[in-house]
């Protein structure tokens, strides 16, 4: 009888048996990053303050505003006002705490692709922004119903379909500016100070410059992102030129610095 000798398969001889772990899905990283935004003491209180302040803010309109101001717009604007300050801070800390608190050492060893981590943070930030604005609209609606009943007037639903997206965009741009500062500076204190500089100090300087240098006057709205922010907040963006200005300020203040920041972030050392 003849036996065929089958040579042993020359596969993994000598090589270590590896566990073939599936890669970490981006949805999981987004979920984790969302959790990380609110499972610290500061993150938790920022979340609470968004809820509390928007109710207080809408409530104060209810108490102090004249009957003519008992409208959906004024309630929503009031309940959204605290968010326009807090949301950029949340966006900043989502990025910078990895460096300022040094938790990045763990984060980037568990997920070595820094691009994925920052991308997940961006998505998580976007979700928080959308969620918060939804809260502002909801609180505004409740306050409007309650307010008009108390004042004994008919509820006025005066937020148009063109105005609502602009209010959403207003908050998202504020967060994007904060996020960008976080990516570029990677330092909590620096980025927060930076945010107040570009949102409070810079517009004044640009306006002043436009006043003393006539050639800059036409240029100023294309550079000053606060100019378009004000229009968005009013829900008053209606010309193509205004949207083009928004595009220009977005490129100058978000797209370019974000790209530069991401490039340096991916190469930098995490210590």
């Amino acid at each position: 009888m003849t036996a065929t000798i089958v040579p042993p398969a020359t596969t993994t001889e000598g090589a270590q048996v590896r566990r073939t772990a599936p890669p970490i899905p981006i949805t999981r990283i987004v979920t984790v990053e969302l959790r990380k935004m609110f499972n610290t003491r500061s993150g938790f209180w920022m979340l609470v303050s968004i809820g509390v302040l928007s109710v207080i803010s809408a409530g104060s309109v209810l108490i102090f505003a004249p009957d003519s101001d008992v409208t959906y717009e004024s309630f929503t604007r009031a309940s959204g006002f605290p968010m326009s300050v807090i949301l950029p801070m949340i966006a900043i800390l989502a990025v910078t705490s990895e460096w300022s608190q040094r938790s990045g050492l763990t984060t980037f060893t568990l997920v070595p692709s820094r691009g994925r981590v920052i991308g997940a943070k961006a998505i998580a930030t976007l979700l928080v922004g959308l969620g918060s604005v939804a809260v502002a609209f909801a609180v505004g609606a409740v306050a409007n119903v309650a307010g008009s009943a108390l004042a004994g007037v008919d509820a006025v639903w005066d937020i148009s379909m063109s105005m609502a997206p602009q209010l959403v965009l207003f908050n998202l741009i504020g967060m994007a500016i904060g996020f960008t500062l976080g990516v570029v500076l990677r330092n909590s204190a620096g980025a927060i100070v930076g945010y107040f500089v570009v949102s409070l100090v810079l517009p004044g300087i640009l306006v002043l410059l436009a006043q003393v240098r006539p050639w800059f006057e036409d240029l100023q709205p294309w550079i000053d992102w606060n100019e378009t922010q004000v229009a968005l907040l009013e829900g008053a963006m209606d010309t193509g030129e205004e949207w083009a200005m928004l595009g220009s300020t977005t490129i100058i203040w978000i797209v370019i610095p974000l790209l530069v920041g991401l490039l340096s972030l991916r190469r930098s050392e995490v210590k």
Binding site: P23, T40, R102
Partner: peptide, 30 residues
């Protein structure tokens, strides 16, 4: 590595953690 935490355990600096998180949370996140 597709999921490095399952293959390599790393401790470089025990103090490099978010001070405002609980120990339990840090492990939950990981």
């Amino acid at each position: 590595l597709p999921n490095p935490g399952l293959e390599v355990g790393v401790l470089l600096d025990a103090s490099a953690q978010h001070a405002g998180r609980t120990g339990h949370e840090i492990l939950t996140v990981a």
